[in-house]
Simulated assay, not measured.
Amino acid sequence: MIFQALKQNIDIEDSVFNKLFSTRNRRLAERHWTPVAIAKIAADYLVNKPNKKVLDIGAGVGKFCLVGAASTKGFFYGVEQRASLIKSANKIAEKHNIENVKFIHSNITEISFSDYDAFYFYNSFFENIDNSCPIDKTIVPKSELFISYSDYVRNQLSKTPKYTRLVTYWSTWEEIPESFDLEYSELNGVLNFWRKMS
């Protein structure tokens, strides 16, 4: 029902979509998971032609990828280091027969960006410098990880081809190479749309 609505471009409230998650993951939604409306806008920009391979850098419970896969003709890949979140995301994808999505249990530093065409980043590294709302206790926050992860992403993005698209949501821009130009912003600069121009 939810995914059929998304396929038909019918708006879905976050309170409805978030019922797909466990009670615990539902409680984390407002702080950690991309709102449906934002996911749709971002996915639409990233999938500017069919079959684009989009990587969600720090997919969490998979909300962005699930929405993007249902509402576009792209393929969505979410990398996430927490096994429990990958399990939850996979369960939802399988139950609702969403075939153009894949969740990868890995650290971002193990991922080569050359395998993907476009990128989404909802500041998944911020938990290392702000522990006011931890996802769980399996990851020990360290400020140096924020820096090293951001450096890794910036380095990988700098190697992508010209015209590569990137969307950032609540980002500090630490991870964005100078070769990417800001095309436009929404939500008072919280949601940003980038394209590599050099």
Rank of each mutant, 00 (worst) to 15 (best):
N90R: 11
K63P: 09
L182R: 04
I57Y: 01
G68F: 04
L157F: 05
F125T: 09
S150T: 04
S150H: 02
A69T: 09
S148N: 07
V153W: 00
I41W: 09
E144D: 13
N18V: 10
W173K: 14
A83R: 10
V140N: 11
P161V: 10
Y152V: 06
K63I: 11
F180A: 03
M197S: 15
N100R: 12
E80S: 00
Q4Y: 15
C133I: 08
N18C: 12
K87L: 08
K73H: 15
S198N: 14
V101D: 04
K91F: 10
I86Q: 00
R26Q: 13
N155D: 06
N100W: 05
I147W: 01
I108R: 00
F64E: 02
I10W: 07
C133R: 10
H96C: 13
N51F: 11
T23N: 15
A39N: 07
L28A: 11
R26T: 14
N131Q: 14
G68C: 08
F76I: 00
F119I: 10
S179M: 04
K142G: 06
P161C: 07
V36A: 08
Y77H: 10
S198K: 15
V190N: 13
S84M: 05
D151M: 13
K52A: 14
Y77C: 04
W194L: 00
T109L: 08
K19H: 13
F3V: 00
F121W: 11
S171R: 03
D11V: 14
S198M: 12
G74E: 07
Y122V: 05
T164S: 13
F64C: 06
D136S: 06
D44W: 08
N18T: 15
V167A: 01
D117S: 08
V47R: 01
H96N: 14
Y184Q: 07
W173F: 14
N107R: 13
R195C: 04
D130L: 07
S185T: 13
F126Q: 05
N90P: 07
